[in-house]
Amino acid sequence: MIAIESLSFDMPGAGKSKRILNDINIHVGRGECFGLVGESGSGKTSILKCLAGQFKGWEGGIAVQGKSIADTSLKERSNTMQMVFQDPYGALHPRHTIRKILNEPLAIKGLPDKAERIHKALKDVGLDESFLPRYPHQLSGGQRQRVAIARAIILDPDIILLDEPTSALDVSVQAEILNLLASLHHRRQLTYLMVSHDLGVIAHLCERVAVMKAGEVVEVVAREDLIEGNVTHNYTQSLLQHAFSRE
């Protein structure tokens, strides 16, 4: 579904450019939930930004559904791939009502039955239509993240990129959103590529995890191996140790 081959990216800076991704190879299968875990500055979010078209000028190959994204525009990809962001405050336009936010993707695509689709997307994320005339600032963090998820699924994409979708939320709300993501994954046969710094969250949702450090993937581990501690790389071991010691 997503094939990333020897992806490298240099962040252009003042004077010298800085290599933030180095020779990344990741393959995500259809319907899989794949995790990227690492500490800040490890480059995990940069991979999503390359996929989402925010970073340009990377080297290597990224293919989505067999088609290289260098050859397709964001508009063509919009039916396949959508994204959920970390900050539920910044991800929704503060001066758009929830109705407008959910209507926008449909209007851009010129799809019929807008009201029906909005109703269904809202229902899928556990909200009802009373939220439609509200503005994002009238919603709680969890509700906002639900709206952001509704916006992502309203075009029926196959892939959703999740950029730390729960790290700005309280733990009890995090549990709800994780449950919602899991059930959507199951119901809609979605493919997830999820970024998180929290091994617990990643292991809860993802079947396979790429552990990243300093712009490189050090290891790709299956969930079972992660839980049992069957990891080979030192860095993964230390991450696991920290995660276990906190429980």
Binding site: V171, A175, I227, F244
Partner: peptide
């Protein structure tokens, strides 16, 4: 108790997290 239980855990993975 709800706060303690709603955290995803590496040791005891549950398919659905309890919600308060």
């Amino acid at each position: 108790r709800g706060l303690m239980e709603s955290l995803p855990s590496l040791r005891h993975r549950r398919d659905v997290l309890p919600v308060m």
